[in-house]
Design a protein around this nucleic acid. Structure first.
Length: 816
RNA sequence: GCCGAAGUGGCGGAACAGGCAGACGCGCACGACUCAAACUCGUGUUCCCUCGGGAGUGUGGGUUCGAUUCCCACCUUCGGCACCA
């Protein structure tokens, strides 16, 4: 007898990886005769090592791309690196390594680690955002957006991370303490002249998800983030004759405005303040400015404010109402001024009670006892009939909003308007390791675009690493000095670089043709491959990258660079792999699982199988070192069954039939699960089938054509998840190279069908018996058999069945 | 407060569309193999029980012959947003 080969992943995995690479097995090229499938997974930042999170994100994505390929699609599955960013610069400051060197050596290591996973990545398409041939086009996009009015420069109070020494976009400031998304340091405000992209111009379109299949969770996060409020813009006047615009979502409460509140930074504050009040107003502004946003926005804080001494006229009733300033009104939302309706807004109510201002009821909800402004203990924000509201009094709740807007528009004092929480995207970064902003400042011509034929503006290599809060480019002795493209006179370059999210907003396009020099991408490649069919990655990008890339696509579509409403049709998010202690993995906790070690210990296939199996992919969960043993055993049991000689016997016909049934039922389930991203049950089903094959082997089914079919289908089904061992076994069985280019097997529906079923028999909905019957049993026969059961008779206890329910193929329920 | 996701054995999880709850795996227990251990293989494993059964999918109701699944009201955990007018 031949000795059985031992499963040694370290021998077979590098061998097949080398062969696949040499053969170009995973190259994907335009082929108009086949349907394309663009499978994209979020590109990693080259931080140093590939961690288990990368594996968790990429293994199922790779497996599904492989599955789609076997289903006949021309699949492209590219990879690259989001290579600009702060950690490279921090490494430079800390260790004296040039960011470029740090980044590119990390990329080299991570590329090899990625290769050890055995993915179907087409490395010819690799794109690295820090390459000049890449950032050339990041700069070009900036210029295009600017030409089309989607970029502006503005002095404004912006979020500044004192640790990273740079400004941040609103999206990169997280949590109640408003900390930097990258390093966790609370941000501060700085007044700076910065570049912005007009993301708000696309706010409404970004709220429309009708063209894409994205998780509800992401849609909700983005919708929340964009924060659309429908309301009204109303023009008040100050007594000195200035217009004072306010925004309100409750125009129906306009007659209840008993005072107005301006943000301390509001430009009209100086003008409305009376001589008598100037001192207290100045003092209030002074202390408000000194407070951080966090202090100002703390919810438990009592409302503070001061009277300006000025008055405004409410345009609906010409009433004279006092103007206050208070820090609960934010300059950054709406117009920075509000009408205060204490009876119907809790914040205004608290303020009014604090300072003894009038509370006037103008809304009376139907189900509430008559309201009285003097005795109320809280505001009543519910909708209701309008009262004390001049010509609109008695307007019912459901008409109040629309009627008031009609009234305001007819009177010319207000109109319907929409406000968003979304802010324009601040893209300036005071850092070196990013794509330069291609702008030159000329004393005569102002901010001039670098002409297209002079792109890219190259990053200099020789810079100093000082954490000064200024871009190192600014400190470079010569780099910024240039001449104006318009007049040729001496001028200076912009020394800020772009947010790296700008570079990652279009990487899916660069993959199409990373060597292309005539534009950001080859239009032929674009027309064939785009849009992205399935996009996979972490949920943490819901309100950053995933908003930016949609904005970018829509903006470029309007400029005529790309086509279609959306860049990525289907999005699926993986969860997070936690440490064994159920905590987030971190070096300081010492709970990090290193995939390299796992590969050395178990082989990539087993790690892949376990990552696919151990949790629901969209939820993730804690790692379990003993849990992986299940995957170890599964792979080894497959190996053993398919390499051991299987003795041929004289199997019973029904055993052969049952083998085929199980194979094709499994195929049905595995196909369904791949399609629906339900990866964990793919392995369960394969394990079940394997157990059944072990059992049937003892029944002598070896050597039969049914057994051959089972082995053949089994290897094809496992190939996407465990590519190396599938290829090795496929090859050992003498099948034609490669298993990965084989078509996905077809389900034989008749083989999958059951001809004998177990009918459940219930009495009053409780399980009392099971009977084995032919699947084709008639209703009458089934009911008769069920009633004949002794167990059923006992439970009926002599009662006559009132009703007998029959569910074909499932059960009989006797109601007695 | 608003929005979203999730609550099922000791653990991860399964149950396609309202029809056998707990597939598959981990762990555990017992057995076989072994001088022994590991590996491997086999059996068992929701809880209670008087061995007839009874209870059971976060809680309380409801719809239904029948609910993990649908409806209503809550509770808990996680994530996001938040003096946003």
């Amino acid at each position: 007898m031949k000795e059985q080969p031992v499963y040694i992943p370290a021998e077979i995995e590098p061998k097949w990886q080398a062969k696949w690479e040499a053969d170009g097995l995973y190259h994907s090229d335009i082929d108009p005769s086949r349907q394309k499938h663009y499978a994209l997974t979020m590109l990693p930042y080259p931080s140093g090592d590939l961690h288990i999170g990368h594996w968790y994100a990429m293994t199922p994505s790779d497996s599904r791309a492989r599955f789609m390929r076997m289903r006949g699609y021309n699949v492209v599955f590219p990879m690259g690196f989001d290579a600009f960013g702060l950690p490279a610069e921090n490494a430079a400051i800390k260790r004296g390594i040039h960011p470029k060197e740090w980044t590119y050596s990390n990329i080299d290591r991570m590329r090899e680690q990625l290769k050890s996973m055995g993915t179907m990545i087409d490395w010819r398409r690799e794109a690295i955002s820090a390459d000049p041939q890449y950032y050339h086009w990041s700069e070009w996009f900036f210029t295009q957006l600017r030409k089309n009015g989607l970029v502006y420069r503005k002095m404004s109070p912006v979020d500044w991370c004192p640790h990273c020494n740079t400004t941040l976009a609103r999206e990169q400031v997280w949590g109640e303490d408003r900390h930097c998304e990258r390093c966790g340091t609370p941000v501060i405000k700085k007044d700076l002249e910065q570049w912005f992209f007009r993301t708000t111009q696309y706010a409404d379109e970004l709220l429309d998800f009708s063209h894409i299949d994205w998780p509800d969770r992401v849609q909700a996060l983005q919708t929340n983030w964009i924060g659309r409020s429908d309301g009204t813009s109303v023009v008040f006047f100050t007594e000195s004759g200035d217009t004072l615009d306010i925004f309100t979502t409750r125009p129906d409460t306009l007659w209840g405005a008993t005072f107005m509140v301006l943000a301390p930074e509001h430009p009209l504050v100086g003008k409305v303040t009376s001589k008598e009040q100037k001192k207290v107003v100045d003092a209030y502004i002074h202390q408000a400015v000194r407070q951080t946003d966090i202090q100002r926005e703390a919810l438990d804080k009592d409302k503070t404010g001061v009277f300006t001494g000025g008055y405004a006229i409410n345009p609906v009733n010409n009433e004279r109402i006092p103007i206050w300033i208070a820090d609960y009104v934010l300059m950054t939302y709406g117009t920075g001024a509000i009408m205060a309706v204490p009876a119907h807004d809790q914040r205004d109510f608290e303020f009014a009670r604090m300072y003894g201002l009038e509370v006037r009821v103008v809304i009376q909800p139907d189900d509430t006892p008559a309201l009285d402004g003097n005795s109320m203990t809280e505001a009543i924000p519910a909708y209701g009939a309008m009262v004390n509201s001049g010509p609109l009094s008695d307007t019912p709740a459901d008409l109040a909003f629309d009627r008031t807007i009609e009234f305001l528009e007819e009177s010319g004092i207000g109109h319907f308007t929409v406000n968003y929480r979304l802010r324009d995207w601040l893209i300036s970064r005071q850092r070196y390791w990013g794509a330069p902003i291609p702008v030159i400042y000329c004393p005569v011509h102002g901010a001039v675009d670098v002409p297209e034929d002079q792109l890219p503006v190259m990053l200099p290599d020789d810079v100093e690493w000082l954490p000064t809060g200024e871009s190192p480019l600014k400190l470079h002795p010569t780099w910024k000095y240039t001449t104006c493209p318009l007049c040729g006179e001496p001028a200076e370059r912009e020394t800020d670089t772009m947010d790296t999210f700008m570079c990652s907003s279009w990487y899916h396009l660069r993959y199409l043709s990373p060597e292309y020099t005539m534009g950001p991408f080859d239009p032929q490649e674009y027309d064939y491959w785009m849009p992205v069919d399935t996009y996979t990655g972490g949920i943490e990008h819901a309100t950053m990258h995933l908003i930016y890339t949609r904005f970018f696509h829509k903006a470029l579509r309007d400029i005529g660079v790309v086509k279609g409403p959306e860049p990525m049709l289907q999005l699926r998010n993986q969860g997070i792999v936690l440490g064994e202690d159920s905590e987030k993995m971190s070096k300081s906790r010492g709970n990090v699982i290193a995939p390299d070690n796992l590969v050395a210990q178990y082989g990539a296939d087993t790690v892949r199988a376990y990552l696919v199996f151990f949790a629901r992919w969209d939820l993730g969960g804690p790692w379990n070192s003993s849990g992986i043993e299940g995957s170890v055993r599964w792979v080894r049991r497959v190996w053993n069954l398919f390499t051991e000689p299987v003795p041929a016997g004289k199997p019973a016909k029904h055993e052969l039939r049952s083998l085929r049934r199980k194979v094709h039922q499994t195929l049905q389930r595995v196909t369904h699960d791949f399609e629906n991203f339900e990866f964990n049950t793919i392995i369960s089903s394969l394990m079940e089938l394997l157990n059944e094959m072990y059992r049937l082997r003892e029944q002598g089914v070896g050597g039969s054509s049914e057994w051959e079919e089972a082995v053949d289908i089994y290897l094809r089904m496992m190939a996407p998840v465990t590519p190396h061992v599938a290829e090795e076994l496929w090859s050992r069985l003498g099948k034609p190279y490669s298993v990965h280019t084989q078509p996905w097997p077809e389900v034989d529906e008749s083989a999958a069908e059951e001809e004998q079923i177990t009918l459940v028999v219930q009495v009053n909905g409780k399980l009392r018996d099971r009977i084995d019957v032919p699947a084709a049993i008639s209703e009458a026969e089934a009911k008769q058999l069920a009633l004949a059961s002794s167990s059923i008779q006992r439970h009926l206890d002599g009662r006559e069945p009132k009703k007998v329910i029959y569910v074909p193929g499932k059960l009989v329920n006797i109601v007695g």
